[in-house]
């Protein structure tokens, strides 16, 4: 099977800034691919390289095996849901959705019928006559989705599409997008800076940092076995342990990560590991306890997730610390 999208050593420089710096990856057809990273890490530029709004400074981009170096955006069978939706303010919803068909020359009656079908797909049937300004943020987002899907693209690009929505709506849309992708079977490329969103939706996940891909893999892979300190830190606020601490905990002399939920507290008597409680942060279902390990272990700061219902230590007290040895993940790279 050919890859939907393939980047081979792609770079994109803006003057001296290396927005994308030698990136390689393939996106399997029909998958839900997320690009995760802080702002300025190059993920949005990668998306724009696929749609054609940016041209690579070097390297090669293939879409379904076809080199698209010379193909302008409007001739790529790829559509985008923009971050600010970019709906046409002078057109009503139906005309917005039918726009892609209109510029291809489809007759009005036919394209209006298609637009109505697409609106039904995103549960906005009957809204065709409204102007974008009369819609809520969530509705606009659905219109943008319908407008991008009407062309039956083989790849759909989504540029932080849920960023402007409030939490509840965002979670509902996450489920809906995932379901839609499975139903339509087309490849989704999803850019986000929200690790929960990326972890919960993606089949494959690429973590970007400073123009390069820090790690690529399944969400489970990335969460459980981060390749670098950056990934461990950015995806799910893991404890990053310096080599001497890893060593003290029974691992090799290398950087490692340890998930807060893989650790537990007990009384300090006879404990192998001890720490002083710095602060408590109540998170609802659990409480995050930050503690400073005793000097013998290198004095690193770690946090432990204590499930609701268990007794919490006092700030300033010394507690014993246990952890699941198999959860100690030694990283390949620093």
């Amino acid at each position: 099977m050919t890859a939907a999208v393939e980047f081979s050593n792609v770079t994109r420089h803006f003057g001296a800034v290396r927005a994308v710096d030698g990136v390689d990856f393939t996106i399997a057809e029909g998958s839900f691919f997320a690009m995760l990273g802080p702002s300025g890490s190059g993920k949005t530029t990668c998306l724009r390289l696929i749609s054609g709004f940016e041209k690579p400074t070097g390297g090669r981009i293939r879409i379904f095996g076809e080199d698209v170096s010379e193909v302008p955006p409007h001739l790529r069978n790829v559509n985008t849901v923009f971050q600010d939706y970019a709906l046409f303010p002078h057109m009503n919803v139906a005309d917005n959705v039918a726009y892609g068909l209109m510029v291809k020359g489809m007759a009005r009656a036919k394209r209006m019928r298609r637009a109505e079908e697409m609106l039904a797909l995103v549960k906005l049937d009957g809204y065709g006559g409204r102007k974008p300004a009369q819609l809520s943020g969530g509705q606009r987002q659905r219109v943008a989705l319908a407008r991008a899907l009407v062309n039956e693209p083989r790849v759909l690009l989504l540029d932080e599409p849920l960023g402007a929505l409030d939490l509840k709506l965002r979670e509902a849309m996450q489920d809906e997008l995932k379901a839609l992708q499975q139903r339509l079977g087309i490849t989704f490329v999803f850019v986000t800076h929200d690790q929960h969103e990326a972890l919960s939706m993606a089949d494959q996940l690429a973590v970007f940092n400073e123009g390069q891909i820090a790690q690529i893999g399944t969400p489970e892979d990335i969460y459980a076995r981060p390749a670098t300190r950056f990934v461990a830190d950015f995806v799910g606020s893991s404890n990053v342990l310096p080599p001497e601490v890893t060593h003290a905990l029974g691992g090799p002399l290398a950087w490692a990560s340890l998930r807060p939920e893989a650790m537990h507290l007990h009384t300090s008597e006879g404990a192998r590991l001890m720490g002083e409680v710095n602060s408590l942060r109540y998170l609802g279902g659990a409480t995050r306890v930050s503690l400073r390990l005793m000097a013998a272990e290198g004095g690193a700061e770690v946090s432990v997730l204590v499930p609701a219902g268990q007794t919490l230590p006092l700030v300033g007290s010394t507690v014993g610390l246990g952890f699941d040895q198999t959860a100690l993940h030694v990283m390949e790279r620093a």
């Binding site: 790829v78 046409f88 303010p89 892609g100 209109m102 291809k104």
Partner: peptide
């Protein structure tokens, strides 16, 4: 005042430069 993305959105949906001008820029 216009959203900067609408010309890109037009190209993304398959309009060439002249169609984008005629159907998106000029009306706005």
């Amino acid at each position: 005042r216009l959203s900067g993305g609408i010309m890109e959105a037009s190209a993304d949906l398959g309009a060439n430069t002249f169609q984008s001008f005629r159907y998106v820029l000029l009306p706005n």
